[in-house]
Amino acid sequence: MFDISLFVLMLLGALLALAVYLPLRAGQLSLATPGFYTIGGTVAALLSTTVPELGGNEQTYPLTSVFLELMLAIPLVALLAFLIGKPVLKLKGIYLAIATIALVEILRVVLLSSPWFGAAVGIFAIPQPFEGPEGYAAAFAVLLGITAWGCQRLETEPLGREMAAIRNDELAARCMGVNSERVKLIAFVLSAIIAAAAGVLAAHFFNSWSARQASFDASITTLAFVVLGGSRTWLGPVIGGLVLTALPELLRPIGDLRLIVFGLVILLGPIFIPQGLIQQKRS
């Protein structure tokens, strides 16, 4: 039997993979995605559990309120990503990766330790806008569809080409008149927005939310989605996110060995298919 909840998780994995993919497309290895995802989820969890006006009169939580949460979380995270991105994107390569890991760790520790955000236990009983997982699957599918469409469009637009140029050689791209600082910042902010939107929906889906979502493991696992799926086109991260989220669940019958097999896949993937599952057409 096909498990719809698993399908929702797969769509979520694909969304987060796209969020990692965008800065990577501009050659920037940012591991901040779980941080922005957690902020999105925290905004949704706090609003929906503490503002009674959002609840409405019906049994289920109104969709318009979810939309309102998105409208609040997205500008907030975009502003944050802008302010953080300005200084951070000056860092190159692995320094950027580690600075973003540091940011996610700071966020996690602060959220886990301060009582306003539910501290270590998290925020519980987040109201449900849908009766079952089918509704969530539809919502996530719409969000993924919009994001993937945007990423696909980007590949032919000047902005996307500028991103690819920076990835290939930033200095050369700058010489050709590409404003690399601006392009990198746009990619970073867009990535944060995708992660935050995914977080808002995920908080409702999981019913509870804590900063444990923002772990170092999550950063690297989402990066693995992108690398194994293929980091050159939008389809790669989507496929990588779908397949690798499903894998540990599908391996459940082999019990304790499943995470070892998962590790093997991550280990052997880049060795045998360095370009990822979805490879770029040669032109």
């Binding site: 693995a224 194994l228 590790g263 991550i266």
Partner: peptide, 9 residues
């Protein structure tokens, strides 16, 4: 990614 995989294992 590969070293992370080794770590997971």
């Amino acid at each position: 990614i590969t070293s992370l995989g080794a770590g997971v294992i």
